[in-house]
Amino acid sequence: MTGRVLHAHLHLLDRQVVRADGRLLCKVDDLEIETGEVPYVTAILAGPLALGPRVGGVIGRLMTGTTRLFRPEEGPAPPRVPMSLVAEIGGAVTVGGDVPEASLERWVRDHLVDPLPGSGGGQAGAGAPRPVRRSEVPVRDRLSSLVGRRVVDRDGGPVGQVADVQLTQDGPLLGETTQALRLSGLVVAPRHTGQLFGYERGPGGNSPALVRVVIRRLHQGSRFVAWEQIGDAGDPIRLTEPRAALLPLEELFTRGDASASA
């Protein structure tokens, strides 16, 4: 049985994380990955320490810098939500279990909102557990570090840059029943042309033709790299095969369609 196939950028990153009771928790600001024999996603990373490096530039550094300044520990880490708590991945990511809220929310509540009359609260928050701290999540353990990385083929010829990471839900067991999202492939775009917006995903319904044509055009020549074709996942990522052996993205979805209808 093959597991569910997702794309990290398209289906997970930047989506809203919601608690089982409907309250909003955070965004999927980044994903933590386990880079072992079988690489898989271990946790959702949230907050400015996860978002900052993805925003990049001065603003991104300012985001992480300010956060570090106000955190007492050495090498503070972004809050994590373990993937074993994830119940559903849809328009939003639903998590079960008891996930602590962000510390900024707590601080603003304790120091600004609660003292105002009519905030509807007393001291209820006092007993709630404070978020558990961990030491820093290294950059190479973050999924976003793969995106944008250069890809070269067996002979060192350029293939392009990583535009998205394909995830397949057939990794090791997390908790009792859920299987982890294994990193199963890369979508490589020939140029730095921004996000794929999901329009590379094949004949996706009746999207506005003009927008689709423009975005397809920008990503012409994109290829799919299966995880097994990767020789060295450093920077740049070196493949074990020549460029010509890679599957063009267009064929990936026509093949996917054929197998779906069969």
Binding site: L24, R106, R109, V113
Partner: peptide, 20 residues
């Protein structure tokens, strides 16, 4: 954008950053 709890359907103290 940041994924904070927002809205007037919860009590202000549950959407502290929003009300701030």
């Amino acid at each position: 954008y940041f994924g904070w709890q927002w809205g007037k359907y919860v009590r202000p103290r549950e959407a502290a950053r929003f009300h701030a």
